[in-house]
Design a binder for these strands. Structure first.
Lengths: 119, 119
DNA sequence: TTTAAATGATACCTTATGGTTTCATATGGA
DNA sequence: TCCATATGAAACCATAAGGTATCATTTAAA
């Protein structure tokens, strides 16, 4: 059997992380946070959408375990959390062999040749 | 500047690929296709949703350059296309240093200590 | 040629998603 | 204490997304 969307516990679920990464604004936020921790307001200043919208994105990122939030006084510091990204990276690693190995390259070449008339 | 969602040409755009990966059913389809090429019907047999729904997923996967489709007679063979996945993997690679290096581990430890009272 | 099989396409429905506006709350400073 | 600042939260909107049902089209096979 493959997948089944279920989460046999243990490591963090993939779905919230993949969901979070699906939006380009959220991916950009992650890039900003990879350079420095930022308050909600600081992040919002980088975009043209409202602070409320940015706040929503931050919640989704937090649900995906891609960032952690740390209250400091009346501010909330948003910090990149690598572990969430790692789980996604690990999922992708499975496919490494499909492009990284010479065997794969060969298979590709054969396959291409085999279906010249298609596509 | 960071991101900006724009695509300076050259390599395939990330958005369609990330979008495609956001759905658990589509990720499962990719896993199936990593084992063998499949017709639309064969893929549909693996799920409980209708063939039409599966077909839509396949279109999204194709738009994300994650699969290629090859007509053969009245069938259409769906094949995993590693290159689309690679672009996503490359995007993620940027974050490797945030969990893979010992420096990062140190930074994490310090950061954790620094915000014990939070969270 | 007639029919069944495999797929494509379209219309329609419900819920999720990304955004905005507006109002409430908490906290640092004068 | 009083006020400005930083967020949080809720209501509301338009559009995207995932599904279904139904009908058209293409191709293998009897």
């Amino acid at each position: 059997m493959i997948g089944t969307h279920s989460n046999p516990d243990a490591m963090p679920p993939l779905q919230p992380a993949f969901r979070a990464l699906a939006d380009p604004t959220r991916r950009d936020i992650l890039l900003y946070l990879s350079r420095e921790d930022m308050t909600v307001g600081q992040v919002a200043d980088r975009f043209e959408i409202t602070r409320a919208a940015v706040k929503k994105h931050l919640v989704v990122l937090e649900e995906g375990n891609l960032i952690s939030v740390h209250p400091r006084g009346r501010e909330r510091i948003n910090r990149l959390q690598p572990l969430g990204l790692k789980s996604v990276s690990d999922w992708l690693k499975y496919f490494d062999r499909f492009w990284d190995s010479k065997l794969s390259a060969l298979q590709q070449a054969v396959a291409e040749e085999e279906s010249k008339k298609d596509d």
